[in-house]
């Protein structure tokens, strides 16, 4: 493994508001060049974590490193290499799209004009339009253009596809984010927090699910798909004394059984086969299904 620092690293991160911990001892390690998913329910602490990464909120305790640097102490060095698209995008209302991009470009050490032109065309954004007249989706598009043209090493996206129409959304995820990472393969990291997990299914390399400010599950996406399987079994007669450790039952109706295996699917399949099922089907869960299964079961499987 390379000795390069992690793109993002948090250790025992805690952020407290009043008496409640929005983030509660979260440790993350995001390797460079990866597309990292950050999932959880509303209020799980995702946005608070992201704001701590960007030094927009100070951690109550614990540490944060971006590309090996402290975002509070090495503020400008970190900000020069990071771009961020917030969940609620807003721009100065007196600026046009062109003014806004000029404004952003003027602060950045790098700005890819060819990418800018391509994205403006793709999103059909009128550069003369006032920011105050943009729809929510258009504001998000403009924020994405501003973030991607800066060619950051770490791109942090908080609900980037909310407000985008389905066509743009698909195009954005596959063409824009995918192309962004491919351009400098191995060196560009995307950290994305989203509820529309299916949109990012093909891009996510690794993910963390948090709940109540804590890490519930961190896995490589491929490993997760191997480990989490949906199993359907039908028996000739209702099996007696069938014990299925590590399985989360979705549906049990007479001779039919549907479950999610979250630890060792092959062992579970062997147990089921021992009862001579009429039918036995196993298929990998999608990332979205894994997130739902994990959060519903409340099981912390590391």
């Amino acid at each position: 493994m390379s000795d390069q620092p992690f793109a993002i690293e948090t250790r025992e991160l805690v952020r407290r508001f009043g008496h409640s911990n929005a983030v509660n001892g979260l440790s993350l390690r995001v390797r460079r060049g990866r597309c990292y998913g950050f999932f959880g329910r509303n209020g799980a602490g995702k946005t608070t974590t992201i704001k701590c990464l960007l030094n927009l909120l100070r951690p109550t305790s614990g540490s944060v490193r971006i590309l090996g640097l402290d975002p509070a102490r090495d503020e400008v060095a970190v900000k020069s290499r990071v771009a961020y698209v917030p969940d609620a995008v807003a721009f100065y209302p007196w600026m046009t799209v062109r003014d806004t991009l000029d404004y952003l470009a003027s602060f950045r050490p790098r700005w890819n004009e060819a990418v800018e032109r391509g994205l403006l065309d793709r999103f059909r954004l009128d550069t003369r339009q006032k920011a105050s007249h943009l729809s929510k989706g258009q504001r998000t598009q403009l924020a994405l253009v501003g973030a991607i043209c800066a060619e950051p090493e770490v791109l942090i996206l908080d609900e980037p596809t909310s407000g985008l129409d389905p066509i743009i959304r698909r195009e954005f995820v596959e063409a824009v984010i995918g192309a962004f990472q491919e351009r400098d393969a191995g060196d560009r990291t995307v950290f994305v927090s989203t509820h529309l997990i299916a949109e990012f299914e093909g891009l996510i390399d690794e993910f963390t699910i948090i709940d109540g400010g804590r890490d519930v599950l961190t896995l490589e996406a491929d490993a997760a798909r191997e480990r989490y399987q949906k199993i359907y079994a039908r028996f000739a007669v209702e099996p007696a004394g069938l014990e299925l450790p590590g399985a989360q039952t979705i549906r049990r109706r007479g001779r039919e059984l549907e479950m999610v295996a979250s630890t060792d699917p092959s062992a579970l399949l062997d147990r089921l086969r021992a009862h001579s099922p009429e039918a036995l089907v196993a298929e990998s869960l999608s990332l979205e299904e894994i997130v739902v299964a994990t959060l519903q079961s409340g099981a912390a499987v590391a």
Partner: peptide, 21 residues
């Protein structure tokens, strides 16, 4: 802010312009 200006500004250059931050 909307009240004070028309919908769009006059034609602007297509390329990014850089100013002192």
């Amino acid at each position: 802010w909307r009240w004070r200006r028309a919908d769009t500004a006059p034609r602007l250059p297509l390329h990014a312009r850089r100013f002192h931050p």
